[in-house]
Design a protein around this nucleic acid. Structure first.
Length: 272
DNA sequence: ATGGTCGCTAAGCGA
């Protein structure tokens, strides 16, 4: 596998934005404050022609790969670094827009960045009575077969909708039967991880068993007081690439911004 | 123990 030589600092962010049009003001705030080189968005909830391309280009994010659909899901990667889109995966073969891949050009040249939104999986953790749960596991199995053949320095980021570690949830025992933290999901995610040897970059920097959440439900009266969070969002890298990660941070304060997403943004910095 | 809230698009779905 190729390695990337140390010429540039490149920062990459991921954020499930839950409607990019409604939340354009906080996206702009984030880009001004953090100025990541690349931002991967999930749940843009719009079609490509509705994406706020000009507004993001005005902030310097002129390079964009948008994979949208009407009303639901949708992913987009916007960048100050030249990139080229090279993949759109439809792991369920049902037309849902949940995965777009880009290759970085210029700084970070050769690095592949996969932006994915894994299905939430419905409420009941039993594929016999809840097809959505089976589709979530199948989605991961198909990504696992794909990951076995990755032979380039790759980062995969996004909303995985699984919190694998005990310290990724506010109450391990209470969530064992709740979709996102069940044993079968954690095992299936581990299979995907092993297929490429992905390194969980977030957990390299905010180490287990330290509390690390990226999502808090809208349904809680006060997300901060009860702090019933889960780490659903992840940034994973190929082993060699992971060694070039120099920093990782999260913007938990974004959960309190005006009209917030229920997810917060994560940022990883590389010396490439 | 249950229901609690969002966003899209126009009553219900997905989260």
């Amino acid at each position: 596998m190729r390695t990337l030589s140390a010429f540039a600092m490149v920062s990459i962010a991921t954020w499930n934005i839950n409607s990019v049009r409604l939340r354009l003001p906080i996206v702009e705030r984030f880009l001004k404050e953090e100025a990541p080189d690349v931002l991967c968005l999930q749940e843009i909830k719009c079609q490509e022609f509705q994406f706020p391309a000009q507004e993001l280009a005005d902030l310097g994010y002129t390079h964009q790969a948008v994979h949208g659909q009407k009303g639901y899901h949708g992913v987009a990667t916007v960048s100050r670094i030249p990139l080229r889109e090279f993949s759109r995966h439809d792991w369920q073969a049902n037309g849902e827009a949940r995965h777009v891949g880009v290759e970085l050009l210029g700084p970070g040249q050769g690095m592949v960045l996969e932006n994915v939104y894994i299905p939430a999986g419905g409420d009941e953790p039993d594929r016999a009575i809840n097809p959505k749960f089976g589709q979530k596991l199948d989605f991961l199995e198909r990504m696992t077969r794909w990951a076995e053949n990755i032979d380039r320095p790759t980062m995969i980021v996004g909303d995985f909708n699984i919190a694998p570690l005990e310290s990724d949830v506010w109450n391990h025992k209470q969530l064992l039967k709740v979709v996102s933290h069940t044993q079968i999901e954690v095992e299936t995610l581990q299979g995907f991880k092993d297929a490429h040897g992905w390194v969980d970059v977030g957990r390299e920097h905010i180490r287990d068993p330290e509390r690390y959440y990226s999502w808090w439900s809208y349904r809680a009266k006060d997300w901060k007081t009860n702090d019933r969070g889960r780490r659903l969002d992840h940034m994973w890298a190929s082993p060699d690439l992971a060694r070039q990660a120099t920093g990782h941070r999260i913007r938990e304060d974004a959960r309190d911004w005006d009209k917030p997403s229920d997810h917060i943004p994560l940022i990883t910095e590389f010396a490439l």
